[in-house]
Design a protein around this nucleic acid. Structure first.
Length: 559
RNA sequence: CCCCCCAUCGUCUAGAGGCCUAGGACACCGGCUUUUCAAGCCGAGAACAGGGGUUCGAAUCCCCUUGGGGGGACCA
């Protein structure tokens, strides 16, 4: 054991090792993504390793499938870990559920050294003690018994059906967290108490597992959210009791919503629930239909509508889609589903709390890795401004070559199982994306071109658009449309250039600007006023489909 | 209620005592451009939370107030 410790020691000074350690409760949260990014960046910058570890010690909170979703989100972002699930590495096991032996051994060591002790309180007893402390306006601290229970006492308690946990005997000393961002933070001894290391179910608590694992995995730098700052003394105490090293700590400021509240999954619920209730009240959708769409059983759906529970991400997304509501993006998967580029998202969240020190903002992951310094991480909480993110994405999309756009669009479609574009091949997607200038996200492709993928005899006409562009002014638009139909009908070369020439010639002859020609055509072939450039749109449809649509529109207006 | 952290334009931030009549980006507002949406171009407005110190000099250092955030679990 000792030689191993020594070799770990030299390894420790030589190699920087950071980790991202999420709990498998769902998709990757935006805050978690930034934590992962910063850890990734530190490792890259300092030539170290980035480790992924799954913290699944709470069996009641683990969600099936969450781990793979987490990993998929991380991979989509390009934050590939060097060691961890699916990759392996020297620590061999990277899920805490697989490392119970290590915790057991560490607990034994602490117990034998008298640094930890058994406790047998029930939940109710603890609650009562806390309530009493609150009533007396005292800080609750667990009342350590004068004589620490023995193993035999623990066996007896277990036999008597009492819960048995192990608590750390917290030393009576102040702790100083030497934080790289916040500076030295002192927490006084009286603020700390004998916290639980091993739960009644035999599993370690987060505090315990983290410390054991960080030591086993030779973690040198811990970058985590500021919500962990007050946990750190617990970890320091444990490291001290176990003779472990203390990593470098850096507690990151928190990412908030524009209104200053915490970015939480609940917001998605709130937004969709409000829309669902409105739809219910308006009689647009009934409960049974909603249950079918969401995939949630009617009972669960009712609970959700009553605000008693939250709905799972995928179900929410399906409902949101059906209800035509924009769900606030909270998890990485949401941003993907909304059509953002992963590197743009990464770039943007990096700027929430970090900047390279000059005026540059647009950076690739590699650039960030070469510029990143913990010293340049700020202390203040940041609000997540979607408008700025949208601008970043727009700019990046405008600069992106077709290949990047096609790849990005593919990723977007993977997250949108109901998209009409799912069935398209790469050639079609290339063609489609090539004619979309100025899109802000891939979702814009859908709003602009979605109608092109509806059946030629079934895409809906927007009444206002028809009125304004085809009927108004005694049917001026309709006359233009009819004239154009006759001219386009005889075109043999259905290229964008030929279509454009035909339409422009007609306009020149009649003294009509393009605006007077494009809009009637646009409404005719798409049903609305929004589409890619009209010549491209007509060419994309092909002559037969375009003419069929124009004919349908003329009949529609005439009727 | 207790403990801890934070505080520059609406938002993200630059600023580490004189370079600041406070810089950039997004948003907003005005104008131009335009085949729709979007994009683009030009221009304008917009901040050192308040109060005390320290100093020749403070956005920068100290204290108080206020405000915001985090924590106070057999959750992480």
């Amino acid at each position: 054991m000792l030689p191993l410790e020594n070799s770990m020691d030299s390894a420790r000074t030589a190699v920087v090792r950071t980790r991202f350690a999420p709990s498998p409760t769902g998709y990757l949260h935006i805050g978690g993504a930034r934590t992962a990014l910063f850890n990734f960046l530190v490792a890259r910058r300092l030539g170290g390793k980035f480790i992924l570890r799954i913290e699944d010690t709470d069996q009641t909170r683990n969600v099936a499938g969450a781990e793979s979703k987490l990993m998929a989100d991380l991979r989509w972002l390009g934050l590939q870990w060097d060691e961890g699930p699916g990759i392996g590495g020297p620590a061999n096991l990277y899920r805490q559920s697989e490392r119970l032996e290590s915790y057991r051994a560490a607990a034994r060591k602490l117990l034998d050294a008298g640094a930890a002790y058994y406790a047998f309180d029930t939940r109710e007893e603890l609650d009562a003690m806390r309530a009493a402390a609150v009533a007396a306006k005292r800080n609750f601290r667990y009342p350590r018994p004068a004589r620490l229970p023995s193993d035999a006492d623990a066996d007896a308690a277990r036999a008597a059906g009492r819960p048995v946990v192990i608590r750390l005997r917290m030393p009576d000393q102040d702790f100083v967290v030497r934080d790289q961002i916040l500076g030295d933070v002192t927490i006084r001894a009286e603020e700390l108490d004998d916290f639980v290391l091993v739960k009644a179910d035999g599993w370690p608590t987060y505090h315990f597992a983290v410390v054991v694992d960080d030591e086993a995995m030779l973690i040198t730098h811990v970058l985590r959210g500021q919500e962990h700052l007050m946990n750190t003394p617990n970890h320091l105490a444990l490291q001290q009791a176990l003779g472990y090293h203390t990593p470098v700590y850096a507690h990151l400021p928190i990412i908030l919503n524009m209104n200053g509240s915490k970015m939480s999954k609940r917001e998605k619920d709130k937004a969709v629930r409000a829309a669902a209730k409105a739809a219910l009240d308006a009689g647009k959708l009934d409960r049974a239909r909603m249950a079918t769409i969401s995939g949630a059983e009617p009972g669960l759906l009712d609970q959700w509508l009553a605000g008693e529970t939250q709905l799972e991400s995928d179900r929410l997304l399906r409902l949101a889609h059906a209800l035509h509501v924009q769900m606030p993006e909270i998890e990485i998967h949401d941003f993907r589903a909304s059509g953002y580029l992963p590197d743009v998202l990464l770039n943007f969240i990096a700027l929430l709390g970090w900047n390279p020190g000059d005026d540059r903002e647009k950076m690739t992951l590699d650039e960030m890795a070469s510029l990143f310094e913990i010293e340049r991480i700020g202390k203040t909480n940041a609000r997540f401004d979607r408008a700025k993110l949208l601008n970043f994405n727009t700019t990046a999309l405008a600069a992106a070559d077709l290949g990047r756009k096609v790849r990005g669009f593919g990723d977007y479609l993977d997250a949108n199982p109901d998209s009409p574009f799912r069935a398209t091949d790469d050639a079609t997607r290339s063609r489609l994306l090539a004619m979309h200038d100025g899109i802000r996200t891939f979702a814009d492709v859908e709003t602009k071109s979605g109608a092109l993928f509806a059946p030629d005899d079934a895409y809906p006409f927007d009444a206002d658009a028809v009125e304004k562009n085809l009927r108004k002014g005694d049917g001026a638009g309709l006359r233009v449309l009819t004239d154009l139909r006759d001219r386009l009908d005889v075109l043999t070369d259905w290229s964008t250039a030929a279509i454009e020439a035909t339409i422009r010639n007609y306009g020149d002859a009649g003294g009509l600007g393009l605006g007077k020609l494009a809009q009637p055509l646009r409404v005719a072939v798409t049903g609305g006023t929004i589409s890619p450039p009209i010549f491209d749109t007509l060419a994309f449809l092909g002559k037969q489909r375009a003419m069929a649509r124009i004919g349908r529109a003329i009949r529609h207006v005439g009727a």
